[in-house]
Simulated assay, not measured.
Amino acid sequence: MIKIEELAKQLSAQIVQTHVSWVLLLEDVVYKIKKPVNFGFLDYSTLEKRRENCEREVLLNRRLCSNVYLGVVPISYVNGVYILEDDSHVVEYAVKMRRIPTERLLINMLDKASTDHMKLIAKRVFEFHTKVERKDEFGRIEIMKFNTDENFQQTQKYIGITIDAQDYAFIMEKTQTFYEKYGELFEKRIRNGRIRDGHGDLRLEHVAFLDNGICIFDCIEFNERFRCGDVINDMCFLSMELELYGRDDLSKVYEDEYRKLSKDEEFDIFLPFFKCYRAYVRGKVNSFLLDDPNYPNKEQAKTLAIKLFKLSASYARLI
Rank of each mutant, 00 (worst) to 15 (best):
H117G: 00
L202W: 02
L7P: 03
D197K: 13
K157P: 05
F217Q: 04
I121L: 10
I163W: 01
I161N: 12
F237I: 15
L120K: 15
S262M: 02
Q153N: 12
Q154R: 14
G229R: 10
R50Y: 06
M109Q: 15
L42H: 01
M144F: 15
F146G: 03
V68Y: 11
Y179D: 07
G283S: 13
I4P: 03
E299A: 06
E241S: 11
N108V: 03
E180V: 00
R191I: 00
H19Y: 13
E205M: 04
E52N: 15
Y277S: 05
F138N: 00
E150P: 00
D292M: 02
N79C: 04
E127G: 01
L242Y: 10
V78I: 15
G160T: 09
E150C: 01
Y168E: 04
K298F: 04
E265Q: 11
R98N: 13
E205H: 08
E243W: 00
T18G: 15
L308D: 05
Y168H: 14
F309C: 08
E266L: 14
E103D: 15
L24C: 06
F274S: 11
L290V: 11
V207M: 07
A208D: 04
A94I: 05
V72F: 06
H19A: 06
E180M: 06
W22S: 01
K35C: 09
N223H: 05
D116G: 14
G200A: 10
D28L: 00
E137D: 10
Y295A: 08
R50N: 12
G246V: 03
I2R: 10
C236L: 08
V125A: 12
I75S: 01
D164I: 03
L84K: 05
I141M: 13
V95D: 11
I232T: 07
S251Y: 01
K157Y: 04
E85H: 13
R56T: 13
E27W: 01
I141Q: 06
Y158K: 13
D230E: 08
P272F: 04
F273E: 08
Q166F: 06
A316G: 07
H206R: 05
L202S: 04
E266S: 11
V91T: 02
A94G: 09
D264N: 14
K157F: 09
R282F: 05
L318I: 09
A113H: 06
R51Q: 12
V90S: 09
I4H: 11
